Amino acid sequence: MNNQELRAVASRALSLLDLTNLKDDCTPDQIVTLCARAQSAFGPTAAICIWPRFVMQARTLLGPDSPIRIATVVNFPSGGMKTEDVLAETRDAVADGADDIDLVIPYRALAKGDAQAVTDMVSAVKGACGPAILKTILETGELKDISLIRRASDLSIAAGADFIKTSTGKVGVNATLEAADIMLQAIRDSRRKVGFKPAGGISTVADAGHYLRLADTIMGEDWVMPSTFRFGASGLLDDILAVLSGAQSPTVASGY
Rank of each mutant, 00 (worst) to 15 (best):
S153Y: 05
K144T: 02
G141A: 05
R192D: 08
R188E: 05
K144C: 00
R191W: 10
F163C: 02
L155E: 03
I202M: 10
S203T: 15
G201F: 01
I157M: 12
R191H: 14
I187H: 08
R151D: 01
A179H: 10
D207C: 11
G160S: 09
F196Y: 02
S156M: 08
I202V: 14
K193P: 11
L155P: 05
Q185F: 03
E178C: 12
A158Y: 01
K197R: 12
I182G: 07
A186P: 09
G141P: 02
A152C: 11
I187F: 13
A208T: 02
A152K: 05
M183Q: 10
T204D: 06
D207H: 14
M183N: 02
A158H: 04
T140K: 04
I146K: 15
A161H: 01
G172A: 13
V173L: 11
K165L: 12
T140C: 13
D154Q: 15
Q185W: 05
I146C: 11
E142W: 09
F196C: 00
T140Q: 07
A179S: 14
I182H: 08
L148I: 10
K197Q: 08
M183T: 01
K144V: 00
A158K: 07
T166E: 06
S153P: 03
A186C: 09
G200L: 01
H210K: 14
A186N: 01
G160V: 09
V171Q: 09
A180R: 03
T176L: 02
V173P: 00
T168H: 07
R192W: 12
L184I: 00
A199S: 15
S156C: 13
A206P: 11
D145Y: 05
V194M: 07
T204S: 15
G195I: 02
H210E: 10
A206Y: 12
T168R: 08
I149K: 01
A175Q: 04
A159V: 12
T168C: 03
D162S: 15
G195K: 03
D181V: 05
T168G: 11
V173E: 01
L143Y: 06
K193N: 13
V171C: 11
L155Y: 04
K144F: 01
E142L: 15
G169T: 07
A161T: 01
V205I: 14
A158T: 00
N174M: 00
K165T: 05
A208W: 09
K165F: 07
H210V: 05
I146E: 14
E142M: 15
F196N: 02
R188N: 10
G172K: 07
T176Y: 04
N174V: 03
S156D: 09
A186V: 04
R150K: 14
F163L: 10
T140R: 04
L143H: 00
V171K: 06
I187S: 12
Y211I: 07
L148C: 09
Q185N: 08
I182N: 03
A152Q: 07
A159T: 11
G169Y: 03
Q185S: 10
A180P: 09
T140W: 07
T166L: 06
I187G: 11
V194K: 05
V194A: 07
A179L: 08
I157S: 08
L212H: 10
A186W: 06
K197E: 05
